[in-house]
Nucleic acid binder design. Structure first.
Length: 947
RNA sequence: AGGCGCGUAGCUCAGUGGUAGAGCACCACCUUGACACGGUGGGAGUCGUUGGUUCAAUCCCAAUCGCGCCUACCA
């Protein structure tokens, strides 16, 4: 067995790579194509971009999905987590073009074929890097099924989908207004457009006014624009029909000052708004969405003035060849010179920017392919209305519905080279379009061989929309599809509901006849400590791998601002450091830099946040806390192993028969933890799962049960020892299985060290090869025992009471004290007797005496807990002033609580309306408090006499 | 402009119609043979503000302030 020697401190750098290697050599994560859907569990990994490297968003989805997947697998489900990467059209092409630019080349220098070869080469070089990084995080997908959206089979699925949609009249080509990016030289879908709002209190543009002279020489009409250069494409001026300023001008024409053109002043109540600008709008049908509509309404035609690169074409007349921004200034200047300028005013517009290049987009007229959305959207809306697909958290349902019911046709063609080329061929002879599955050799319509394929490729999201079934072999009717479609869960970020989730819903229902997944789980964004989105510009990006492997603060900052330098972090300046430290104040508390927190600690940390919160603000000191928890698990296991090597086998198929109160108690708490984790994982509340297990393991198993084991191991009878050993070993073993979906590496390592006798066997009696393929804990592993919890609670509170007296009276831990416990309850008395050794050990008392209630001697530290009186005689040592202060504090606390409840009980309306159990609980509590106050009062009186 | 979300301890976050919880941080004590990446004890919040519903509101409703996100428009 490859395992550590359990050398002292926990070291993830040692543990994690070893288990990663073992997992890779194993078949643990393989799913089976059984052809039957029952008992299957399937999640499709949201495919990261080939260009990408691991970021916090990936780390988060790996944590959430892997926990669900491991949990399902351990429950014996036929579990498929299918990994893959996306070709990410624009993103990848941009990266490769950037690389070319460093060699002084553009893609046009290479030509389409050689450029695509180049991208493939780049993909081969770096394409699997993201998988390696997923492995570092401990992800457990079925690697043998890894897919790439440009694989031959997935490309065939894309073409099949395109052709079918075309045959069904749902895929069509149209000449419409689109958002054009002059830098990327492609059209973008509405979703790929970013809006840049102006900063508060600042103007980002100006509204420039100028006059058109009327053709008949009778005057002029003044229009206003933020884009003066577009006037070169103007074909009308629109005014509101009821606007008295312009009513008489309707029907007249104006003369263009720079090109030989006359055009009319028209009435358009839809577009013209008398309250805006001058009330007269210049109409540029080819370069504005509203103007285009207006132009169509009035049959104005369109004049395109821009080249694809954003320079002006021949229509620009004297301005032809100029860049659009240069042309803007030139047009303004020319208008001034002609005496047509009418001033300008500061103005604000929300620029439409390219998501990739950040360039300002130009609305342009262009022929593109569209998918008709309405017939696809309707069933997808219905599916959610009927609950066949459910969103968690459910408030996203509204967002989905709103978008789906206001949906526009989807522009799916892109003027790129990297992607799935559109399977449409245009005939030079008859002008017809041939769309088919196999590359045609002749025009479908006239038989001509002079056909050329559409140059464009499909939007990346088109192939992504098919992901839940294209990855399972569609369009063939495969066993994989039968087994895993519809998938169980789709887990992803809320930021791609429209891009991806909605489109998968539509395509899944359309092509498969069934929703692609029954639950959509949406997680939030991982942000910096102050809640700011991570970005290179802000300098607050943290690479999860730095957290896993450890790094100096400077290295992390270098990554954050994108100044990754091998070796030293050269080039960092004070501003970079300040930006980063402002974003992460708690880094100041990590003097030795970032330790290797390990993938398990990072997973546990990410899992500890409510997944449905919109933001997860990265807090490094909290992460450190979970790293400490890993160490705690490590050490507890290490301690236990020194005692349980000879543990007896667990009674067949059941949990140990608990002999003592402490054992019954810890098994009961274990049952609670099992329940908490089970519910947490199945209800998409990993935070509740992590907290259940953290609470149990640290505060119950380690702080109490382990400590209660020690006196038994020291001085118990053989039978007692054997029993405690079994219970301890059992709790550990179940804990390891319980925590495995959250912390796969650490738990594998710890579990591998447990004696075979204690490890849960499979139904065939064989010890599983690893936790990854072991059974998840269930009701057979532990049982709640509320009676044990109650009595144990008294013992715990009594011990804590003694400690508090000692701490607050300043009694040194070494002092030889005698603790007297007085109770009239024989059950408690028996418990105190049974745990006399533990009581001494845990309170550091020399002697513990259990006795019946009686007169109180003078000079004692005193407390009253659950009717148990705790007395610590300290004749000679005690400071009456301190003891008095302590008792007064206790009395005040009890009185305050009691008063509050009494006030409530005095309210007749409360008695009449509140549920009976609430009233009874209150009454019982008041009785207890009254008794306590009485006894504390007596004690206080005696102390006052002394003082 | 419309929609959504958030505002709880110094920080990061859970939570509930019955007078509040965690981790970290803080204070004091303890180097006890799993762990100082530890143990013990302690302090700390008028649950953004104002109204309303209720016997009872941090929780439900309304308004308001502050922050964030999304969608749309912008001559």
């Amino acid at each position: 067995m490859s395992s550590s020697d359990f050398s002292k401190p926990y070291d993830p750098k040692d543990v994690e790579p070893r288990w990663r290697a073992r997992a890779e050599a194993s078949g643990w994560y393989a799913a089976r194509d059984v052809g039957a859907h029952e008992d299957s569990f399937c999640i499709m990994i949201p495919p990261p971009n080939v260009t990408g490297s691991l970021h916090m968003g990936h780390a988060l989805f790996i944590t959430l999905q892997d926990a669900m997947v491991r949990h399902a697998r351990m429950h014996g489900k036929n579990t498929l987590w299918l990994p893959g990467v996306d070709h990410a059209g624009i993103a990848t092409q941009v990266v490769v073009e950037r690389e070319l630019r460093r060699e002084g080349l553009t893609r046009h220098d290479l030509g389409r074929e050689r450029f695509i070869d180049r991208v493939w080469e780049w993909k081969r070089r770096s394409g699997d890097r993201i998988f390696e990084q997923l492995k570092v995080m401990g992800a457990s997908p079925d690697w043998s099924r890894a897919k790439f959206t440009m694989d031959p089979d997935l490309s065939a699925a894309v073409r099949e989908a395109f052709v079918r949609l075309h045959e069904q009249g749902l895929m069509y080509r149209a000449n419409r207004m689109v958002n054009w990016c002059p830098t990327c030289r492609t059209v973008l879908s509405d979703l790929e457009v970013d809006r840049e709002e102006p900063e508060a209190g600042r103007f980002n543009s100006e509204l420039f006014s100028f006059a058109y002279k009327l053709s008949d020489g009778s005057g002029e009409i003044v229009v206003a624009t933020t884009r003066p250069e577009t006037m070169l494409g103007d074909l009308a001026i629109a005014v509101h029909p009821d606007d008295p300023r312009y009513r008489d001008l309707i029907g007249k024409t104006v003369r263009h000052p720079f090109v030989d053109r006359e055009f009319p002043i028209i009435a358009d109540a839809i577009l013209a708004d008398p309250t805006k600008g001058t009330g007269a709008v210049k109409i540029t049908p080819a370069h504005d969405f509203n103007d285009f509509e207006c132009g169509r309404r009035h049959g104005l035609g369109e004049i395109t003035i821009l080249n694809p690169d954003g320079t002006l074409n021949a229509e620009g007349g004297p301005f032809a060849g100029m860049d659009r921004f240069a042309a803007r200034e030139a047009v303004k200047k020319a208008l001034e010179e002609k005496g047509l300028a009418r001033g300008s005013a500061p103005h604000n517009i929300a620029y439409a920017l390219c998501q990739r290049s950040k360039d300002i987009l130009e609305p342009t007229l262009s022929p593109q392919w569209y998918v008709k959305m309405q017939p696809l959207a309707e069933p997808a809306v219905k599916a959610v209305e009927e609950g066949r697909t459910v969103f968690v958290p459910e408030e996203w349902t509204k967002t989905y519905m709103h978008w789906m019911t206001h949906i526009q046709d989807w522009c799916v063609s892109r003027q790129l080279w990297w992607g799935h080329q559109i399977p449409a061929w245009y005939c030079a002879d008859c002008g017809g379009t041939t769309v088919q599955r196999e590359d045609p050799s002749a025009c479908q319509h006239c038989g001509s061989a002079k056909i050329t394929q559409d140059e464009d490729v499909l939007d990346t999201w088109f192939s992504s929309a098919l992901w839940p079934f294209s990855t399972l072999g569609w369009p063939a009717e495969t066993d994989a599809l039968k087994t895993f479609y519809p998938t169980t869960v789709m887990e992803t970020g809320y930021d791609i509901i429209f891009f991806w989730v909605a489109r998968m819903m539509m395509m899944g229902i359309h092509f498969m006849g069934e929703v692609p997944f029954s639950r959509v789980l949406l997680h939030g964004l991982v942000c910096d400590e102050n809640g700011q989105k991570m970005s290179k510009v802000k300098g607050n990006v943290i690479d999860p791998l730095d957290l896993v492997h450890g790094a100096t603060v400077d290295q992390v900052i270098a990554n954050a601002v994108g100044k990754r330098v091998s070796g030293d972090a050269v080039g960092l300046d004070a501003a970079d450091r300040k930006k980063f430290l402002d974003a992460y104040p708690s880094v100041g508390k990590l003097p030795e830099g970032f330790r290797a927190f390990g993938a398990d600690a990072l997973r546990f940390y990410l899992g500890a946040h409510a997944p449905q919160s919109r933001k997860i603000n990265l807090n490094l000191s909290r992460l450190q806390g979970y790293r400490d928890f890993c160490n705690k698990i490590w050490n507890a296991t290490r301690f236990a192993l020194t005692h349980i090597a000879d543990v007896a086998p667990r009674p067949t198929g059941d949990f140990p028969t608990p002999h003592s109160l402490a054992e019954r108690w810890i098994l009961s708490r274990l049952a609670a933890a099992v329940e908490g984790v089970e519910n947490g994982i199945t209800q998409f509340r990993l935070d509740e799962a992590t907290s259940a297990v953290y609470q149990f393991f640290w505060y119950e198993l380690c702080d109490w049960f382990l400590e209660l084991c020690k006196p038994v191991f020291d001085a118990g009878s053989d039978a007692e020892k054997a029993s405690y050993k079994l219970t301890l070993a059992h709790c550990l073993e179940v804990s390891h299985r319980l925590m495995h979906p959250l912390m796969p590496h650490l738990t594998e390592e710890c579990w591998s060290h447990l004696p075979d006798a204690i490890r849960r066997r499979r139904s065939d009696g064989v010890v599983p090869e690893a936790l990854a393929v072991a059974a998840f804990p269930n009701a057979g592993d532990a049982r709640r025992d509320l009676d044990a919890e109650r009595v144990m609670g008294v013992l715990q509170d009594t011990i804590e009471g003694v400690r508090r007296i000692c701490a607050e009276l300043g009694i040194k831990p070494g002092a030889a004290i005698t603790v007297r416990l007085r109770t009239a309850d024989p059950r408690y008395a028996q418990t105190f007797h049974d745990y006399e050794g533990a009581l001494r050990r845990l309170t550091r008392a020399r002697e513990v005496v259990v006795e019946a209630p009686g007169e109180r001697p003078r000079g004692v530290g005193y407390a009253s807990i659950h009717g148990v009186e705790v007395l610590i005689p300290l004749a000679g040592h005690i400071d009456p002033a301190k003891e008095g202060e302590r008792l007064e504090k206790d009395v005040a606390k009890a009185r305050k609580e009691s008063d509050g409840i009494t006030r409530r009980l005095a309210n007749a309306n409360f008695i009449a309306n509140a549920p009976a159990e609430v009233v009874e609980k209150d009454q019982a509590r008041v009785r207890e408090l009254t008794e306590r106050i009485e006894r504390l009062g007596d004690a206080l009186a005696i102390v006052r006499e002394l003082g």
